Computed example of a mutant assay.
Amino acid sequence: MGQLKDFQLRRLEEHKYSCASSSLMDPMMQKWWCWLVEQCPLTLAPNLITISGLLVNIATSLLLVYYSPDAKQEVPRWACFLCALGLFLYQSLDAIDGKQARRTGTSSPLGELFDHGCDSLSTVFVSLGVACSVRLGTHPYWMFFQCMMAVTLFYCAHWQTYVSGTLRFGFIDVTEAQFGVIAIHLLSVIFGPSFWSLKGTSVLSPVVPLLFILVPSVLIAWKSPYDIYLQNPTIYLLTFGCVSARVTNRLVVAHMTKSEMAYSDASLLGPALLFLNQYVNCPINENYLLYIVCIYVIYDLIKYCQEVCLEICHHLNISLFTIVPKRPASSTSSAAFEKNGSSKYMTRSKAKVKSN
């Protein structure tokens, strides 16, 4: 028995592609894509364009995996450049396959399925490539989160399409994310993969958590269908302010303990939940969810501060809010101290007289 039933094949014939995009960079890239598709011969099949771009992307990503199989070693700069170039080629070919189909009159549901199937596989290799480029394997759990979040967001985008019938691209979406990854690879080319070191030697380590707060706070407020910020300005600012305070406290701890500043932070789950809810067309009312997230980040901040303070108090044997009176020194020890102290100073005085 085949994978598709007869009724599925019949309904596939009725399928019409529907897409809505407000992407920031797509309009800028249209001239390049339109010029590129004109260079393709009319005999070139659109699906062949798609699979060619995917193979280039996979090959260049596997090159980084070859040099850094656990994403901990530094990869050659030229390999990062090839990976950036491979992703750009994939993006360009992926953008023109539909144009080639319309140009040659060969548009079909198979082309759409083939395109999205290749995209789903490409997402995996793009995630692995960028992890190797920045040596994210030094933080294996963060690497896991990054890769799984990428494929989850891709799934959610098509879940939204399944429910609404229209594939929607936001202001900051696939094209922008791909250019962001290309920029990361190019920075590795220019400064070397050690530029992204997470072991306290890179000044970028504290910057990344801040970006994880600042960028979502702007995007969530901007794209909210409920005007989440305008409706709840104090709660919104309190929520992201507490997240910022939590991350700042970790930065202070990292400075005082001369340790690394980790990228991941439990408080970032709050903004991530708001962002994910908005990404799938807000199945949960944003205003209610904001209050839940606000309570969570306040609790998380208090819990973190309490645990840090108690651990330091225990280690230094001090009290947090009270002063423990010191025991008075015994007369014997005082006399011994005075004797040792006086003889010490007498010795110094005698040595000084002799030297004079």
Rank of each mutant, 00 (worst) to 15 (best):
S127H: 03
S52P: 00
V252M: 11
A245M: 14
K352C: 13
V56H: 14
S107D: 01
V253W: 12
L316N: 08
Y296A: 02
T248C: 10
S355W: 09
E14Y: 12
D265K: 04
L187A: 07
V130K: 10
H255Y: 09
G137S: 03
F240A: 01
P41D: 00
G270M: 05
W142H: 15
A101G: 04
T347G: 14
G129K: 04
A272H: 02
E13G: 08
S264N: 15
G2A: 09
V243I: 14
G341I: 02
Q178S: 10
Q278N: 05
E307N: 13
L64F: 06
A266G: 12
A254Y: 00
I58N: 00
C147F: 10
H314E: 11
I312L: 15
T138D: 15
F275Y: 01
D227I: 03
V151E: 08
I58Q: 00
P206R: 00
E307C: 12
S133D: 02
T248L: 13
V293Q: 07
V353D: 09
K326C: 15
V215D: 02
H15T: 03
P27R: 03
S334G: 01
L121D: 02
G341L: 15
A95D: 05
F321Q: 11
G165C: 12
C83K: 04
S108D: 08
L210D: 01
E38S: 01
A351W: 12
S52F: 11
N281L: 15
C147A: 13
L210R: 05
M256D: 10
L268C: 04
L320T: 12
D6S: 14
A20F: 14
V324S: 12
F337I: 05
L89S: 11
Y17Q: 08
I318P: 02
P225E: 05
A20L: 12
S18A: 07
Y155Q: 12
G270A: 15
M143H: 06
Y304T: 02
I190T: 09
V151P: 01
L198W: 07
